[in-house]
Design a protein around this nucleic acid. Structure first.
Lengths: 134, 134
DNA sequence: GCTTGACTTAGAGCGTGCTCGAACGCCTAG
DNA sequence: CTAGGCGTTCGAGCACGCTCTAAGTCAAGC
């Protein structure tokens, strides 16, 4: 199984740049990646899966510092699983809260838009760049 | 009606710092605020309402540059209402999309947590810092 | 008059998360 | 042997959104 990927392949698959992948490794988000005899990185499937997980955390705006903490726990071994679970639970709670406030804000935005629409339909200046066919 | 507020009062009410309020004014997010005879800012109720709206936009992660664009349109007069509505609609769409991906991620997080919980219950090392009374 | 304290401006500095540049190494093709 | 291309490290630089400092003004209280 030649299941090892070059940094460019991983970049392509994850959407991160090679620069960013090296950066993540530097700051400890990604554990030391295996190297070929020429010193180049050879990412395993597990590495890629972990990066995918990191991207999910990032997508929920977990700060890099927290991801680092999580990565450290992971590297420390199985006995930190409980701690890791707690981190995730805490983070999940903030994500859920954020979803709620976003939904709230989305509703407010929709109201504002409706307000604008009313303004326009009440015969104010017609929109130049908007085909607003009632 | 002494409906004018000092910068500190506005800071208190909006949760922004006085520094940030001045900064927002400097970069054009908040139009020129009226001044008292002593040169100090005197915020009107309309100013405060506008700041509230800005905060909502910020809460949905609208970039400052976009808020500036919106503020410019607003300052340009009523005839930009259509354009402003379009901006809001576009932004609302991104907010809705983001809510969706956050929900997706939240579900994935919940799965991961469940996974950890399973690990723990399958008799791995007991958690030191977790009273997991099955 | 002097002090205190809240305000003003202009501009420098900072935390976060990348992003890029410079200089070099190694492999392959021609 | 040389050139090209892709990788490496180390460190500087950047975009964003504030945040703070410095130096000064003004009004009120002692």
């Amino acid at each position: 199984m030649d299941t090892f990927l070059s940094i460019d392949e991983v970049a392509r698959r994850t959407g991160l740049s090679a620069h960013t992948l090296r950066y993540y490794e530097r700051i400890g988000l990604i554990g030391p990646v295996a190297r070929g005899s020429d010193g180049r990185r050879r990412y395993s499937a597990a590495d890629v899966a972990w990066i995918g997980f990191l991207l999910r955390l990032r997508g929920t705006r977990m700060p890099v510092a927290s991801m680092q903490a999580f990565a450290r726990l992971r590297a420390a071994g199985d006995h930190t699983a409980g701690e890791r679970r707690q981190m995730l639970e805490k983070h999940l709670a903030t994500v859920v809260a954020e979803i709620a406030t976003l939904q709230h804000s989305a509703a407010a935005l929709a109201d504002k838009i409706a307000h604008y629409r009313r303004l326009e339909d009440t015969g104010a200046a017609p929109q130049p760049s908007s085909r607003r066919k009632r």
